[in-house]
Nucleic acid binder design. Structure first.
Lengths: 206, 206
DNA sequence: TATTCACCCTACCAACCGGTCGGTAGCCTT
DNA sequence: AAGGCTACCGACCGGTTGGTAGGGTGAATA
């Protein structure tokens, strides 16, 4: 029997609305700087109602992180699976990472915040939200090296610099947007992208 | 008349002891996650005594940021002034930035936190603590290009990637230290440094 | 000797925090 | 009609926050 969702109270997606609001809030003001009350207000419910869906602030925060990291991981796997060539795989993954940062800056900032706030938790085995991501990419590069498509270099060190540059740039965007003119900002956005691609090309391919 | 500083109460440097403790605390737990009481405890005074030296939490935080950024700026100017060759200047500055991150990770994390927490404040004219820094470096590169020592590329985009990669790596160190073995960690530290130098070399000099 | 002043303290405050409690409204199943 | 369920709420709790008021102390100044 199909369940009818009442129109007057679309309560079924209250949970996801909370998650969305929490993602933005934690991203903007961090875990300690965000009160669950302010999140509840954004969803237009009261605090006890929020705590009905997520039994504690920590649980809510954890749910947000898990949603973000799982989406990131799924994107990576999909990207790698959809191409054969290692060179194109790497470029596509970097492109996906770039678009992720541009389209979901909240999530990019959140992941970085978590690394700063909670290095030991962020690092714990299956909990570092970029560890499996980086590991997959490392192996991709090693495959490319074995096939002779990539130059010989340390995959991890290389990747960390490229991912770091990209991630850092993304979280800087709100700041940059304010100190640069609109045209300068737009130009830098394009230039940085081309610069990073050029770096990857001359370091890995040539 | 020279003022004698009493030995029993070296109160003159209570202020700097507060600053040091605050730098560490804010770096570890952020502005909202840090209570002035915990800072006072670290200095072994009571909260009102701390508020006697810095009249509010915001003021203290501002003083910490100013101390960090002024030292960073002084280092940059000293480094540039102590060399003639643009190529060597750039390498020395990057080296200085690297050592800053290694020797004062607290400060590196703090600057990044400030960018996340307060993009509009962090960006405001004379208050973005890396803006003048980046500007000086940009001009250095432009000089090198005019002299024909550097390749032709967009200085800002290039710099942002290099600085970003380095800064990102530094703030990742606590996390990396926990997911890697001691030997792997040490190896990565060396490799990343060489990798970044290689990137600069082949992109800017060759 | 009297006064000032920097420094540190105890005691206190209103505001806010995360979280619990008892209870209500409405829907679904039996 | 009864019972159970989810979603939601007002009132409240203990505890912590940044900040204030005011008093004590000891050294420099006059």
């Amino acid at each position: 029997m199909t369940k009818l969702r009442s129109v007057s109270s679309p309560s079924g997606d209250t949970k996801s609305r909370i998650l969305a609001a929490a993602t933005q809030a934690f991203s903007e003001t961090g875990f300690y700087g965000t009160s669950i009350n302010s999140i509840a207000e954004a969803v237009e419910i009261k605090k006890p109602s929020l705590l009905h869906h997520f039994s504690s602030k920590e649980k809510l925060y954890g749910a947000v992180l898990e949603q973000v990291s799982s989406r990131l991981m799924a994107d990576l796997e999909h990207t790698i699976a959809s191409t054969e060539n290692e060179k194109q795989q790497l470029l596509n993954v970097m492109d996906g990472f770039y678009r992720w940062g541009k389209e979901r800056p909240d999530e990019a900032i959140l992941i970085l915040r978590e690394m700063l706030d909670n290095p030991q938790r962020a690092a714990s085995a299956h909990n570092w939200y970029l560890a499996p991501w980086l590991e997959q990419l490392c192996e991709l590069i090693r495959r490319g090296q074995q096939n002779g498509h990539f130059k010989n270099l340390e995959p991890m060190a290389f990747l960390y610099n490229m991912i770091g540059a990209q991630h850092y740039f993304v979280v800087s965007l709100p700041t940059l947007k304010q100190i640069l003119s609109a045209s300068d900002f737009k130009a830098l956005l394009k230039q940085q992208r081309e610069e990073l691609l050029e770096l990857i090309t001359i370091r890995l391919f040539q």
